[in-house]
Amino acid sequence: MEQRNKVAIIVAGGSGSRMQSAIPKQFLDLAGKPVLYHTIAAFAASFKDMRIVLVLPEAHFHMAEEVLAHFEEKPDVTLVKGGETRFHSVKNGLRQVGDHAVVFVHDGVRPLVSTTLIRTCYEAALSHGSAIPVIDMKDSLREIDGEKNKAVDRERYKIIQTPQTFLSEILLPAFDLPYDALFTDEATVAERLGHAVHLVPGEEANIKITKPLDLVIAKALLEE
């Protein structure tokens, strides 16, 4: 298998508003360690040569240092100031990426991502240029159109997860594009340059912690 540099851009710019907490959700306790610790640990364990770029508000840098102090062996982590939107935050992080790399962009509040999924995304990106983890819809869906609504086929839709993974020669030029509010994730940015995105199976446990119940679920999953 081709070997490339590996860089994880972990975006951790959230607040505690939906968590009803004064502490930003990425720093809340999860099984005795901050949420962000578990996220960083997964990437550090996936490849020995993984570089981690942690993007977050400059005001949170001291909290990030406290997270890193939990590691017996500190991983290779660079702190980068976030931007106005996710797009701008990722763009700031990408300035730390050199050539011939596989770039993982991951939500800091997805602490249960497995090393298996990270490695799967790496291999798929080498083969297809990108790897976007997805899971199936379980609930019924309805499309709203003004005062009307109709059922839609859930088999035609997928739930998107991270890490969204790309070869550097695809992702770096894409983020030279002007910002567009339609850029909801990295895949939509790459698609704007005409790149098809490759989907890979995600993981049910790879949840995004945004509300108090998510933290309870994550703790239960970790205890398993």
Rank of each mutant, 00 (worst) to 15 (best):
L221E: 10
A124Y: 05
S21C: 11
V134W: 01
E66S: 12
F183L: 08
D49R: 06
R119V: 09
N5V: 02
L177D: 04
R4P: 01
V80F: 03
A174W: 00
F175I: 07
A31N: 13
E203P: 05
I160E: 04
K74L: 10
V11R: 03
F175M: 07
F104L: 13
L94E: 03
K91E: 12
K148G: 04
N149K: 08
K33L: 10
D145Q: 11
V90N: 04
L28M: 15
I23P: 02
F43G: 01
V97I: 06
I23A: 07
T39H: 01
T116V: 10
N92V: 00
V97M: 03
Q164M: 12
H198P: 05
F166W: 09
R51F: 02
G32N: 08
S15T: 15
Q3P: 01
E73R: 15
V35T: 11
T184R: 11
D185Q: 10
G32D: 09
P201A: 12
L199S: 07
R119Y: 04
Q20L: 14
I23Y: 08
A64Y: 03
A42D: 06
D99F: 07
L193I: 10
E169W: 11
L54W: 04
H128T: 07
S114L: 06
H70I: 00
D153Q: 10
S17C: 03
G14Q: 13
E169T: 13
S17P: 00
P24G: 10
L167M: 12
D29S: 13
E204T: 09
A12W: 03
E191T: 14
K48L: 06
E123G: 00
D99Q: 13
T85K: 01
E155T: 14
E66D: 14
N206Q: 11
E72A: 13
V216K: 13
H60A: 12
P111L: 09
S140C: 04
D49P: 02
L167S: 02
Y122D: 02
E65G: 05
G82F: 01
V35I: 15
A196Y: 08
E224W: 00
T116Y: 05
L126E: 11
K25T: 15
R156I: 03
K150E: 07
P111A: 11
S130K: 04
L68G: 04
T78C: 03
H62T: 11
T115R: 11
R154K: 15
D76C: 08
G129M: 07
V97E: 01
T78W: 04
A218C: 08
A101G: 04
D136S: 13
I159W: 09
N92I: 00
A218V: 03
D153I: 06
K211P: 00
E84G: 00
G16M: 07
H88Y: 13
E223C: 06
R192T: 13
L213D: 14
K25S: 13
Y122F: 15
V109S: 12
E84C: 02
E155A: 15
S127W: 00
M19Y: 10
F183S: 03
A218F: 04
I170T: 14
G13W: 01
F47Q: 08
V97H: 03
R192Q: 15
I160D: 02
D176P: 00
M63F: 09
I144Y: 10
D136H: 11
E169N: 13
I135M: 07
Q164G: 05
E66I: 06
L68H: 03
Y157N: 06
N92H: 14
T85L: 00
E203G: 12
